[in-house]
Design a protein around this nucleic acid. Structure first.
Lengths: 234, 234
DNA sequence: TCAAAAGTGTTCAAGTTACACCCATGT
DNA sequence: ACATGGGTGTAACTTGAACACTTTTGA
């Protein structure tokens, strides 16, 4: 009898299709970029879309997101976070599909470009994002908002840079995120006062004759900063 | 042929059951409270749970959340926001159920207590939250974290107070959220400097002989504050 | 030697913290 | 008249903003 009750409880529920969509940000030393791809199959064949997939029976939304990120970028460790659930009844005319969106930050890296290319994926400047299928443009707007907010209290910007980076690079990144320029003296002061960077003895000479010192991000110090509840930046 | 492709595309997807769960916060002038209810049916009969429901075919997650909030509290306009998607494969032993969680803030109000009571729901102090079914304790932890973070840049605290409230009440609320006490002079200075409150000519004499002036929240001024990107509090 | 980007300090304004007493009122 | 909670100001300190010149080096 208990079993019957239990069964009927679940029976009243409507099964829907669940998808994950990943809004993937990258940074190419100048511009914030978004990874989009052109669909190769119907429905919406040849239209641009963010990268997604249906969830498989044996995976959580997070696992599905990790899977598609790996497929399209060749990367396994990616900073990724839930963005939100998109569940308008008529959002997908082909079926009742609910999408759990994630946003992800990756280091742009020539080595991986081939993987990206084979999937007919392409990096777009933020200003050049085309019209996308379904509610994907909406997702991107939400992701941008979240990125800006998040970057204030978490140094997620570092996820977008190579492991070794220079302060001018970091500044350019924040300028791209917030669409404004910062005073370099104040910027350096603020960043360095957080004491989460380690200065290396190497210089990156790719952008100037003088060369700029490389830094790495000290995760341990960062953790203690977060635990102290620290506001991060900007 | 196109149609066939389209059908097969959706066919590869696995339908899952979708639920919404609402983490409902209230404030009773002293303590932050959580609304929980005791399940009347199997599975998990007589165990405590946050308030939830399966999504119906013709509603979005938001609509489902509004529906259950209405059913359990009698309220129609409730501050509510997505918390996250809980999709661990084995989170519900009875079926593959993915839950979209929301957190909601409501004004505690005697008028509505009857509705709450008829659903065998009960307000719990945060420290007294019992063991809950499934991953509901996890959701509550996440909701608390989000509440704290959110209250820093949005005056969501106001959602938890009556429309007219006193500054000592507001201070108690923030003290409950952040589990620390604030200096009343500094607190008042900070709040009033935001210029989002309107002082009324009435006093609330329920807690002191002198009485405390009542204030209301000026939504228009608040909007312009948010648009200027203002940090809010704390 | 010069062009181009990296790096560096100081001053002023604003905001945050710490701190203690008087006020208004009902009983 | 007194107990109770409401309300107020100031000084020290910290943080953020504005601002311009020197350094390094490859070509």
């Amino acid at each position: 009898m208990k079993l019957q009750e239990r069964e009927s409880y679940y029976k009243e529920a409507l099964p829907v299709l669940l998808a994950v969509d990943c809004i993937i940000f990258g940074f190419d030393r100048e511009q914030l970029k978004l990874l989009l791809f052109k669909r190769k199959i119907e429905p919406f064949k040849n239209e641009w879309s963010v990268i997604g997939s249906f969830m498989k029976p044996d995976e959580s939304a997070e696992a599905a997101a990790v899977r598609v990120l790996g497929e399209y970028t060749g990367l396994e460790e990616i900073f990724m976070e839930q963005l939100g659930c998109y569940s308008q009844v008529d959002r997908d005319p082909g079926a009742r599909v609910v999408s759990q969106a994630f946003f992800a930050l990756i280091r742009l890296d020539e080595k991986k470009e081939q993987t990206v290319a084979t999937h007919e994926a392409k990096w777009f400047d933020l200003e050049e994002v085309p019209g996308l299928i379904l509610d994907h443009n909406l997702m991107i707007g939400d992701a941008l908002e979240k990125l800006k907010r998040k970057a204030r209290y978490r140094p997620i910007g570092f996820e977008l840079l190579p492991k070794k980076f220079t302060l001018p690079q970091l500044q350019k990144l924040y300028e791209a995120i917030y669409q404004q320029s910062f005073d370099s003296r104040n910027f350096r002061k603020k960043i360095l006062s957080l004491q989460v960077l380690k200065k290396l003895d190497e210089k990156d000479k790719s952008t100037s004759r003088k060369g700029a010192f490389l830094y790495t991000f000290n995760k341990r110090k960062y953790q203690s900063l977060v635990e102290r509840g620290g506001q991060f930046l900007m």
